[in-house]
Design a protein around this nucleic acid. Sequence first.
DNA 1: GACAAACGCGAGTGGTCGCTCGCATTCTGG
DNA 2: CCAGAATGCGAGCGACCACTCGCGTTTGTC
Lengths: 223, 223
Amino acid sequence: MAESQEKEQPRRRQARGERRIAQLLEAAASVFCTTGYTAASTNAIAREAGVSPGTLYQFFPNKEAIAIELGDRLMHEMRDTFGEALAPVDPATPLEEAVGAAVDRFIAFNCDHPVFFALMHGPDIPGHMAEEHDALHATLLARIEGLLSSLLPDARPVDLGRTAHMCLGLYKAGLELVLAHEGAERDAYVRELKNVLIRYLEPLAAGRPGPARDSGAEATGVR
Amino acid sequence: MAESQEKEQPRRRQARGERRIAQLLEAAASVFCTTGYTAASTNAIAREAGVSPGTLYQFFPNKEAIAIELGDRLMHEMRDTFGEALAPVDPATPLEEAVGAAVDRFIAFNCDHPVFFALMHGPDIPGHMAEEHDALHATLLARIEGLLSSLLPDARPVDLGRTAHMCLGLYKAGLELVLAHEGAERDAYVRELKNVLIRYLEPLAAGRPGPARDSGAEATGVR
DNA sequence: GACAAACGCGAGTGGTCGCTCGCATTCTGG
DNA sequence: CCAGAATGCGAGCGACCACTCGCGTTTGTC
């Protein structure tokens, strides 16, 4: 029962193999982006990578493993990009600044890796991948909750959880619109998304530091 | 070339046939809800309806037609439920009231017909159904835009369109969370969704009638 | 009651997809 | 240089799916 979990890895990869794996993952990302996970065929992924179906199955036991490995690498890259820099926040940070920075980083990451959205958003997530999906979701929620609790120390835990869910949902909605546009229009949607989140959270942040709150519209960042 | 468009309807349905159609659509709605459109098999729909696959194809030429007919009936029911009552609005209506009423009606409809969300939200919409989907999307956007223009007469047309897109996206995000919960928690999410929309739109409605705007949090309906 | 049409069935058809298998080719350690 | 492992191939297998077809049953009409 010592090493029964990880039963086998006598597989010594060569440099060529690692290259093929990266190539296949890149191809898979491309295909997943355009067709979604379920509609993506392994043959299409292999074709996109310029290899045969058999070669694909030399490196991945099944279709699901491709998506899982892709998800794992994205998660790692995500942590590397803004590791712990996102969760904790100085309680003195103005709300607008904290929200704006968080949104900018996430948007940048998602624009660089559109697969992430495709795998997250897809309603087609068979069996074992749902766990990965839920784990990521829970991680993000915990991060957001932590960030919110530092921004809104007065909120009750129950409300905080709900607020975190709302923020994540709102972000996903905004992300979809952002990804659907380009250039100046995309920037405008990013601006709108920030407005949504800031205005949603603002009334919850009573008696906090930052710019004096008045009733003016311009002061809340309409433009 | 006179009646070449509608090439054939010598099909005289019997009462039994109409009943089967309703039965099949109900079964399809159930299956679409649980598995989504693409993952739903026509055999599963027939089984759910308690008929054979052949019977299903007596009434529908193909799988897509089932979803389209289902969508059409939902659209009709939607129009019947709150026909023109949603688009135009008295410019003197307070923002909170208008948004609250619109959200309540849409939420009620979507809770009664969860298929609607499944067909709307699905990323799996093959070929010809995309048109239906886009048409519905455009209709909703136009309605929202009309409602917004009566609420926010000062906004520029370009911004108005973007705002309408944002509102629809935010609603869909909120709807997902609402449908994922039940009872008191569901009500709480409805409340939050209204808060999001009201607070997002509030700064855009300068110099409009309604309760005097101050900086208090309680006044905007936090609790 | 008779005839035709609508209804109902379920095994079957063609096609796609995930995945395998046997065999050829390239690489690596000794 | 050579055994053995890793890599590469692509035809093919079984499963599933959308959809069809021939035939038996029910229903409306005269």
